[in-house]
Amino acid sequence: MGFKLLSKLLVYLTASIMAIASPLAFSVDSSGEYPTVSEIPVGEVRLYQIADGVWSHIATQSFDGAVYPSNGLIVRDGDELLLIDTAWGAKNTAALLAEIEKQIGLPVTRAVSTHFHDDRVGGVDVLRAAGVATYASPSTRRLAEVEGNEIPTHSLEGLSSSGDAVRFGPVELFYPGAAHSTDNLIVYVPSASVLYGGCAIYELSRTSAGNVADADLAEWPTSIERIQQHYPEAQFVIPGHGLPGGLDLLKHTTNVVKAHTNRSVVE
């Protein structure tokens, strides 16, 4: 069995187990497998329904001669939608809004960016022009300005110390501490036991640490421990890039980060 097929099978099995364990909360999309990078042309966006009122959005972007996937989250909030992270750029984010209108038909009224990198804030200006209120932590807003990236308009308070959590509509926002970046936030959907790890969490097929220019490698494993301790009931975990899975993604990420750190020390 090929690795790609095995990865998709694991996603399907995880979703099936969740649907059985929580039949009222989960209505997993039966329309197909989780979209992969090879299936999404740059400039297009796919939506994948995880649970009743919960979707991931998947886009792709060219970077350094390669094409990478990027995940975000959409959560229903009454007759409105909360968006977590842009679709990595203005063109993708405009396509995301169009796809949401086509498939869901509810307005996106608020959006949260989970850290300051372009795959999370690139497209904020498109959201703002569409009347979406954009939010991020003060740290993310400051770092985005320093980096020359787009800056969300509103500040999220109460997320300055490791372990801080605040309720934001249908989700809980959690600051686990520094990891992929010093400002990275985690998003949890309690009604569906869905954990969105953003770039602080890796997919299972990833074996290298990737972009760690703004990471705190020493603190990252401790931050992941905080996530595990705060959300032990999480059933569906979405990484910032690639295929979702279960809580095993947290341990896998820790292993990859520690291996990278150990290699760096040896070198």
Rank of each mutant, 00 (worst) to 15 (best):
S113V: 05
V212W: 03
S181G: 01
L217T: 09
V194Q: 01
T86H: 00
S181R: 01
S70F: 04
L217F: 05
C199E: 01
I84A: 01
N149A: 14
Y175K: 02
V124W: 04
V67D: 15
S56G: 15
V237C: 04
A19F: 15
A87H: 00
K4M: 13
M18I: 15
E33G: 11
V265E: 14
H260F: 06
T36C: 08
E39M: 12
G198C: 06
L195D: 00
E147N: 15
E44W: 08
W220F: 04
V67C: 06
S139V: 13
S56I: 15
D77S: 08
K8Y: 15
V189D: 02
L47M: 13
V45N: 03
L9A: 14
Q235Y: 08
D79I: 09
T36R: 12
H260N: 10
G198A: 07
G123W: 05
V42H: 10
L243V: 14
K91L: 14
E225R: 13
V121K: 01
N262V: 10
P244H: 05
A66L: 15
V212Y: 04
T253K: 03
R76I: 09
N71K: 04
T253E: 01
R206V: 15
H180G: 00
Y12K: 15
L10T: 15
G240R: 05
I238D: 01
H230W: 08
A129G: 11
V126A: 07
R120S: 11
Y196T: 01
D125I: 04
L159A: 03
P176K: 00
H180Y: 07
P190Q: 09
S16Q: 15
L9C: 15
E101D: 13
I74K: 02
V45S: 07
W220K: 00
G65S: 10
L6P: 08
A87C: 00
R263N: 15
Q229R: 13
V166G: 05
L195E: 00
E101P: 07
E233G: 11
V28I: 13
E101R: 13
A90H: 09
S62F: 05
A111I: 01
L81W: 01
H241D: 04
S155A: 14
N149H: 14
V37F: 15
E233K: 14
A95V: 11
D214F: 03
E44T: 13
L96R: 00
S208Q: 10
R263S: 14
S223G: 03
T93N: 00
T14D: 09
E150A: 03
L106N: 08
A129Q: 12
G131V: 06
H154M: 12
L82C: 00
S139P: 10
G197V: 04
N255H: 11
L249V: 03
K258N: 13
L250H: 06
A98I: 08
L81N: 01
T207S: 12
T93Q: 00
V266H: 11
G197Q: 01
M1W: 06
L143M: 11
V42A: 15
G122F: 01
D164C: 04
L217Q: 06
E80I: 07
L127I: 03
L159S: 04
G2M: 07
F26Y: 11
G245T: 03
P41Y: 08
L249N: 07
T14N: 07
V42F: 07
G210I: 04
H252A: 03
M1N: 05
A133D: 13
A200L: 11
A129I: 09
Y231N: 08
G197N: 04
N149E: 09
L5I: 15
V42K: 10
S62M: 07
I224V: 12
E33W: 09
S223I: 01
G72N: 03
Q229E: 13
G246F: 05
V187I: 09
E44K: 11
A95P: 02
A87P: 00
L127R: 02
L96S: 00
T140V: 04
T86V: 01
V266W: 12
K4I: 14
S70I: 03
N262E: 13
L204M: 14
A234T: 08
T222V: 11
A21Y: 15
Y175G: 00
N184T: 02
R206S: 15
T114D: 00
K4W: 06
I186D: 02
S191G: 12
N71S: 06
E203Q: 05
A94V: 13
Q228K: 15
F174G: 01
G210D: 04
L173Q: 00
G197T: 03
P190L: 07
Y135A: 03
E33H: 08
L243Y: 15
T134D: 03
S137Y: 05
P232D: 07
P152E: 01
D183M: 00
K91E: 15
S22H: 08
L81Q: 00
L47P: 07
L6E: 15
L24H: 11
S161V: 12
T114C: 00
V265K: 11
C199Q: 01
A19L: 15
I238Q: 02
I224Y: 01
L82H: 01
T253I: 05
E147G: 13
I58Q: 06
P176R: 01
L6Y: 14
A130F: 11
G123C: 05
F116T: 01
A192Q: 13
A192Y: 07
P170C: 04
P244S: 04
G122Y: 08
D64C: 06
K4Y: 09
E99Y: 09
W88F: 00
V146Q: 13
D119Q: 01
R226K: 07
D125G: 10
V112H: 06
L195R: 00
V256I: 14
D118C: 06
A218E: 14
F3P: 07
P176I: 04
F236G: 03
V75T: 03
V132W: 01
Y48H: 11
F3S: 10
S62I: 07
L83C: 00
D64T: 11
S191F: 14
Q235S: 11
R46S: 09
V171L: 07
N71Y: 04
K8C: 15
I100L: 08
V132R: 02
Y34L: 11
E145K: 14
R110H: 11
T222Q: 14
E233L: 11
P239N: 03
L249W: 03
V126F: 11
V11H: 15
S193W: 10
A200C: 04
E150F: 01
R167V: 11
N255M: 12
G122N: 14
T140G: 04
K251I: 14
A178N: 09
L185E: 01
D164N: 14
H117F: 00
G53C: 06
E33A: 09
G240E: 05
L195V: 04
G65V: 06
V108I: 10
S38V: 08
H260G: 13
M1S: 05
R120A: 09
G89D: 02
D118Y: 07
S264Q: 10
M18D: 12
Y231F: 10
V132Q: 01
S137V: 06
L247K: 14
T182N: 13
A94P: 03
T36K: 12
D214T: 03
A66N: 15
I100E: 00
P107C: 05
T261Q: 12
V11Y: 07
Y34Q: 10
L204Q: 11
G72P: 04
V11W: 07
R167F: 12
A90K: 09
